[in-house]
Amino acid sequence: MSVDNKDWPLWEVFIRSKAGLSHKHVGSIHAADYEMALENARDVYTRRSEGVSIWVVESTHIHANSPSEKDPFFDPANDKIYRHPTFYDIPDEVGHI
């Protein structure tokens, strides 16, 4: 990799839209460090009052499963219907869960 690479690293942005909810991934931005990343995220993703809290994580620190492993990763859960709570009668008073 060239040493005079002037591109800032990529950061993933997570925003909590209101107190009580969890942070959700909203997109990514470029920034030289975490302070600039927070300001850039504020300017790009909260212009319409979308959030009360921002997390930024350098994208290189996020590890994802490989798409080619999708089957062994997720298929075994498909035939284990007993993991879903569908065998219980729910009293009407409970309403929607």
Binding site: W8, I29, H30, A31, E39, N40, D43, V44, R47
Partner: peptide, 11 residues
């Protein structure tokens, strides 16, 4: 110079 700074100044 960067999309992010463009938006920051325009804000």
């Amino acid at each position: 110079p960067k999309l992010e700074q463009d938006i920051a100044l325009i804000n």
